[in-house]
Amino acid sequence: MPTNVDRYFSYDHLPLPLQAVSKPIADLQELMEKLLPDGPEKSAGMRKLLEAKDCLVRAALTN
């Protein structure tokens, strides 16, 4: 079963400068979802990637 955090990587609703930060991370999430076998490490990695995406988008807001 694939992880179910993919919906949190959407970026179309963001302003263009924030999309530029979020899209490469969403692309990586999609690639990892396809490449890696399902399991607890993949789930943990996806959660950490989501956390990193949130931090990086917030960092872009401070500019």
Rank of each mutant, 00 (worst) to 15 (best):
D6K: 04
A26H: 06
P2N: 06
C55V: 10
Q19Y: 09
E41Y: 13
P40T: 15
D27C: 07
L49G: 00
P40E: 15
A26G: 12
L18M: 03
D38C: 00
L50P: 09
R47Y: 01
L18D: 07
L56E: 06
K53N: 11
G45N: 12
E33H: 13
M46Y: 05
A44C: 11
Q29H: 15
D27N: 08
M46S: 05
A20L: 04
E30S: 15
T3E: 10
I25M: 05
C55D: 15
E51I: 07
L49H: 01
L50Q: 03
M1Y: 01
Q29E: 14
L36Y: 11
C55Y: 09
A60R: 03
A60I: 11
H13E: 13
S22H: 12
P24Q: 00
L35K: 06
L49Q: 09
P2Q: 00
L31S: 13
L16P: 05
S10K: 06
D6Y: 07
N4I: 10
F9R: 10
K42N: 03
F9Q: 01
E51D: 04
P17V: 11
G39L: 05
Y11H: 10
L14V: 03
C55L: 15
K48M: 11
H13M: 14
K42F: 07
A60S: 10
K23C: 02
E33K: 00
L16N: 05
V57N: 05
Y8C: 08
A44W: 08
P2L: 09
M32P: 01
A52Y: 02
D38S: 12
L61W: 01
K34D: 13
P40C: 13
I25L: 09
K34G: 04
E51T: 06
V5M: 08
Y11L: 01
S43F: 07
L31V: 09
A20E: 12
P24I: 04
L28M: 08
P24K: 06
L31M: 14
K34H: 00
L36C: 00
L49N: 04
T3M: 11
Y8S: 08
P40I: 15
I25N: 04
A44S: 14
L14K: 03
K48F: 14
P15V: 15
Y8N: 09
H13D: 14
K48T: 10
D38A: 07
L35S: 13
S22W: 01
A52F: 10
I25T: 07
P2F: 05
K53S: 02
P2H: 12
K34V: 09
Q29S: 13
G39C: 12
H13N: 02
S43Q: 10
K48A: 15
A60V: 01
E41M: 11
P24A: 08
L36R: 02
S43K: 13
C55T: 07
A59C: 12
M1E: 11
V21M: 14
K34Q: 00
G39P: 08
R47T: 08
G45A: 09
S10A: 13
P15G: 00
K53C: 02
L16M: 06
G39I: 13
K48Q: 14
I25V: 14
L50Y: 04
T62K: 03
V5Q: 09
P17D: 03
L16Y: 08
V21R: 12
A44K: 12
L28P: 04
N63I: 15
L31T: 15
T62A: 02
